[in-house]
Design a protein around this nucleic acid. Structure first.
Lengths: 337, 337
DNA sequence: ATGAAAGCGCTAACAT
DNA sequence: ATGTTAGCGCTTTCAT
């Protein structure tokens, strides 16, 4: 059976194609009477206008591109996977196709750029900041875009971000409340903005409590399973053992705890651990990881809603999440009693 | 700057639009000389033909849709998330956009159907089997599609599947080799094909070894964290404690081990655990989970390559993975010595 | 309010 | 080998 066209509908309704088009686009120019008649026929036949032609004419694609870099470590992607799931879930409420765009290298960046040039995307949601160079190119196109989990506080683009500094501070303060005084830090230096914030929060909490920071306790080379294991080893090999470790990501805590056990220490009896993100798997590691929850679900929802507003030129503004919800599980020993 | 059109290129080259079109589509009808000239100009100007028009005329979208249901449990999606990552990774080598299509309910199924009617997809990769009803509709459209991780061995569509029966059998045989005789089973009844295979493999291995199966050891209501925890509780509450538990998915093992510990038993001293899938996080649970690896990376790669062949009407055939790679970690006690 | 017709940017059949 | 032109299915301007 041939796919119906607007011509067919027009013929069936005894009107011109223009009339049908007006109805299709909720525009004026047809009497209520004929509008209803046309609507009926569209309903009955299940007619849907050809999307390519619409895109061609309307210069609108009904696509939203989700752009991201594929990281080395699968685990470090878990945070974004959870956001992705939420974006998908929320996209049901909108009429967009979600298109995935890998921008791990220049070659792939070009593809996305090409999509833009062709009006094949209405807006872009970046997971993490793309290179500034790429941002510049995008900005030149006037296309709406937003960055989820940006680490550039002063960037002049729309974004959904987490106040990681405050998150880190809250986390460390929690450890202090639990009676810990020797607190180490495992972070990810390669992500400079993120590092600056998480370390800053840690430092502030420590200083406010007049707690000393040993040089060997600051490990900043973590970025995946192996590297965070090594970070923990360095801490253990340092001059003084901490009573607790604050990890800037749950993922880092997983292998750090492993390392601790491999060295014959017990968690949390000998060393406590506190993470950040509250990934789904953090419930299942042993001991279950106490951590600060970051609402990935909300981030995903907000992303879709925000980009939709941008596309429709409604009012909008960037969103900063200040997550301060402590998830108490069993990886932190209470020294305060 | 206005986007160049084929007309502009034709004018610049002093030829007709047809000539340019032929070059664009690698077709005959132009002399080598003019072909080169046109190619040069395209190269120099960075011209890319409007994709909507091409789609309209060629009845080809350069899109591949990835269709899936969003499950209740995030964790049960982890397996598919890993396949998704691999699909994305492999898609770099092809010229398709990857479009995500949620088909969790009829309303969303319609959207995908609409994409098909509009020639807005060249092929569909399903993660898990969709409803037979939906399959029927798709088959009516003649669109290439394939199912990753199908559980319908006799289905007449192209698929990438895992020989779960053999996988389960191999797993249980491994436990038997390690001296275990009382082996329980935790599976997912709601996925009938999967259940049939995994339980079948378990049963065959047990029978071959002349090992008895206690009724209380067979728990089939697992499908997420909570339910598999409950399954394990039932096993513990049954008349005889097993020395090992084979879980049809790593995810089930995570909380089963938790349950075991909550009941005062130790893993693997008192009860051993063996999983299936080898998810990334299985390295990090405590104790690290011994499991049978399923090559999600390969499955993803194969999916893209296969659908591409189908689209281009090259030769192809379904793929069955027989995964028999045991990943030995620390959740299984060796009773054999 | 309604219809005719000129685009949108390309492909491909048809002339030359 | 090359150019001309009729579509593809819709939007939108311009007459009526």
């Amino acid at each position: 059976m041939k796919h119906l066209t607007i011509k067919d509908i027009a013929k069936m309704a005894g009107v011109s194609t223009a009339a049908v088009s007006f109805v299709l686009n909720d525009k004026e120019g047809v009497s209520e009477e004929t509008r209803e008649k046309i609507k009926m026929i569209i309903e009955r036949t299940g007619f849907t206008p050809n999307v390519h032609t619409r895109r061609l004419n309307l210069k609108k694609s009904f696509n939203i591109n989700l752009a991201f870099k594929q990281n080395v470590s699968m685990l470090s992607n878990m945070f974004y996977m959870e956001i992705l799931a939420s974006i998908l879930s929320e996209s049901k409420n909108f009429d967009y196709n979600i298109v995935l765009s890998d921008i791990s290298d220049v070659e792939r960046e070009k593809r996305l750029l090409n999509n833009i040039l062709n009006n094949d995307t209405d807006g872009i949601i970046f997971l993490q900041d793309p290179s500034q160079q790429f941002i510049n190119k995008i900005e030149g196109t006037e296309l709406p875009f937003l960055v989820v989990d940006t680490q550039r506080p002063n960037a002049n683009y729309t974004a959904i971000s987490v106040d990681y500094k405050n998150a880190a501070k809250t986390s460390v303060e929690y450890l202090i409340t639990k009676g810990h005084k020797r607190i180490a830090f495992i972070g990810m230096e390669t992500n400079t903005g993120f590092y600056h914030n998480t370390f800053g929060g840690y430092k502030e909490a420590m200083e406010n409590a007049n707690l000393p920071i040993m040089a060997g306790w600051i490990q900043s080379n973590a970025y995946d399973e192996k590297s965070s294991y090594d970070c923990m080893q360095s801490i253990i090999d340092s001059t003084m053992l901490p009573s607790a470790v604050f990890c800037a990501s749950d993922v880092f805590a997983y292998t750090s705890m492993l390392c601790t056990k491999d060295n014959g220490f017990r968690v949390p009896c000998d060393i406590s651990f506190f993470g950040m993100d509250d990934l789904h798997s953090s419930k299942y590691v042993q001991p279950s990881l106490s951590t600060l929850s970051v609402d990935e679900e909300y981030m995903g929802q907000a992303a879709i809603r925000l980009i939709d507003k941008m596309i429709n030129k409604e009012e909008y503004e960037s969103i900063v999440l200040s997550s301060t919800t402590i998830i108490e599980r069993t990886s932190v020993k209470d020294l305060s009693k």
